[in-house]
């Protein structure tokens, strides 16, 4: 199975297409969601890089976590992430996803997103401006083209570790083992 995954990751044509067509599911947690509309609309026009918004997790490639995550929201994010189809990437947006940001001592937000779902690119700042967001997307495109954006593969291989971390913070875990 690992050979198959590596072969898929290093397919030049598929990586080129994945790079130039990123369909974003903007998960509007926290305050970062306000920076997404200017990124997508006329002023900064992310569509010229092939970046388009999508409505459902089944169709999307990139999960954009915009800001802090409450524990209640984390449950929905895990469900959404696991419903996305396989070459899938996560962008952590803002300082809150890196180390908690201004919510570093809050009792009900997670501090480090990377412990719960695999993040391919972090965009720091509070908030990052649309230029920063587009720069983050371009960094992600470069990683995809080199076949290095393998967060989804890492998640499959280390599912037990991620699951243990997730169950540590979500006390009333009622979801199935994997949400297909």
């Amino acid at each position: 199975m690992n050979d198959d995954l590596d072969r898929q990751n290093n397919n030049i044509i598929a990586n080129w297409a994945r790079k130039h067509s990123l369909w974003v599911l903007a998960y509007g947690t926290g305050c970062g969601a306000i920076e997404v509309p200017p990124t997508m609309t006329s002023r900064y026009d992310a569509e010229r890089f092939g970046i388009t918004g999508m409505a459902t997790p089944r169709q999307a490639d990139v999960l954009l976590i915009t800001g802090y995550l409450a524990i209640k929201t984390l449950k929905r994010v895990i469900r959404t992430y696991e419903q996305m189809q396989a070459p899938k990437y996560v962008i952590g947006f803002g300082s809150c996803t890196i180390n908690g940001g201004m919510y570093w001592d809050s009792y009900n937000t997670i501090k480090r997103l990377d412990d719960y779902i695999p993040v391919d690119i972090f965009i720091n700042g509070c908030m990052p401006r649309p230029e920063g967001v587009i720069d983050g997307f371009i960094k992600l495109q470069e990683r995809i083209a080199r076949g290095q954006a393998k967060g989804w593969q890492h998640y499959q291989e280390n599912l037990d570790w991620y699951r243990a971390n997730q169950k540590k913070v979500i006390k009333n875990w009622t979801m199935p083992d994997y949400n297909w």
Binding site: A14, D45, G50, R58, W180
Partner: peptide, 23 residues
């Protein structure tokens, strides 16, 4: 806006065909 290249939909379809599908 500037907009995507005219062949953007063909890129999208190549990408979609190269995705894994488990639904």
């Amino acid at each position: 806006r500037f907009g995507p290249p005219p062949y953007q939909n063909i890129i999208d379809i190549i990408k979609l065909y190269s995705k894994k599908t488990a639904i």
